[in-house]
Amino acid sequence: MTLKILDQGLLTTVQDLGRNKFQQFGVSGSGVMDEMAARIANVLIGNKENDAVLEITIIGPTIQFEHGCVIAVCGADLSATIDHQPIPLWRPIYVKEGAILRFGRPIQGCRVYLAVAGGIDVPIVMNSRSTYSRGRFGGYKGRPLQRGDVIKCSPHYSSMTNKLLSYFKKRINASSYMTVNWTIPFFFSSYVNNHHEINFIKGQQFAQFTKEAVAKFESASYTVSPNSDRMGYRMQGPALQLAAPQDLLSEAVPKGTIQVPEDGQPIVLMSDRQTIGGYPKVGYVATISMPSLAQVMPGKKLTFKRISIETAQNELIKREREFLLLKTSLALKIRGLSYATN
């Protein structure tokens, strides 16, 4: 199964859940910006959660399917169509051979994920298929996709994927695509539209900022700068000042670290972040809020809300339990489809 890139859009890369255990060697973790949308896209069509997907940013590509296949499109609403017919998000879709997927005006969010049955088949580099463009490795030739690229997908399907294929092939008509009449519960996708309040926990240097700076950070609105990218989200708003100058040693920085450079404007480190940083850290975006943050369009405003480590952990545990229930319910729905073909 192959995909042909007829137009590359703004920024389309191959990503999975990230390149772990190499940060000590100076290798960025990379991976998807919105982990939740990518995971759901994969499980909707029977893929493994970590299978490689296409991450599409703001202006989408034009893609031709050179073989019939099952896909899912999850995350932002970028007005996706197949052969100029609107398609739904957050559900499995069968696409006929030769059909063309296009994206139009961004309506909500800024990143959408295309999962294809079997997963995008690119070489594994340091335990991941993710693209790290700055390092020019991983993904498809170490770079964003370009017009004329032909992307291979794995031919190895799960039993769930085969059941979906069997169901669709027995029912497809003259239309270029077919989908099911169900989707995931709304609360799994609502974060794409509800991303104005970002939860964070205190960083190592939180107490070293002035009281006025902390009060501003927790109450004022910040605009996501147009200079933001997969490496970091630059914020524009009230400057944060330290109570006294600090001379800090560089140390490892995880995704979600909120650094404050000398100009006082916070920077949230994202998937393609550097591996170490020496700026003061006012906080860390809670893992539960990272998908929401990844969907904030440059130029939009957001606020930061401080929560405790315990609350952040409990919310993450709750989400993962809900996700496990979602996987189980999807398996049952797809099994029911297979029975309907008999």
Score class of each variant (00 low, 15 high):
Leu3His: 02
Val14Pro: 01
Glu35Val: 09
Asn50Tyr: 03
Asn50Ser: 13
Val53Ser: 07
Val53Ala: 05
Glu55Trp: 12
Gly60Ser: 11
Gly60Phe: 10
Glu66Gly: 04
Gly68Thr: 08
Cys69Ile: 10
Val73Gln: 04
Leu78Arg: 12
Leu78Phe: 07
Ile87Met: 13
Ala99Lys: 00
Ile100Glu: 09
Arg102Ser: 08
Arg105Pro: 14
Arg105Cys: 14
Pro106Cys: 08
Gly109Tyr: 00
Tyr113Val: 06
Leu114Met: 10
Asp121Leu: 06
Arg129Ile: 01
Ile151Asp: 03
Ser158Ile: 00
Lys170Asn: 12
Ser190Asp: 15
Glu197Ser: 11
Ile198Ser: 06
Ile198Pro: 03
Ile198Met: 05
Ile201Trp: 07
Ala207Thr: 14
Ala213Cys: 03
Tyr222Val: 14
Val224Arg: 01
Ser225Leu: 07
Pro226Glu: 03
Gln236Ala: 10
Leu240Ser: 09
Asp247Pro: 09
Ile258Lys: 00
Val260Thr: 12
Asp263Cys: 06
Arg273Cys: 09
Thr275Asp: 11
Lys281Tyr: 00
Val285Thr: 04
Thr287Phe: 08
Pro291Phe: 01
Pro291Gly: 10
Pro291Val: 03
Leu293Phe: 00
Gln295Leu: 07
Met297Arg: 13
Thr303Glu: 15
Phe304Gly: 09
Lys305Arg: 15
Ile307Glu: 15
Gln313Pro: 11
Lys318Gln: 10
Arg319Asn: 14
Arg321Ser: 10
Leu325Arg: 12
Leu326His: 07
Lys333Arg: 14
Lys333Ala: 11
Arg335Val: 02
Ser338Cys: 03
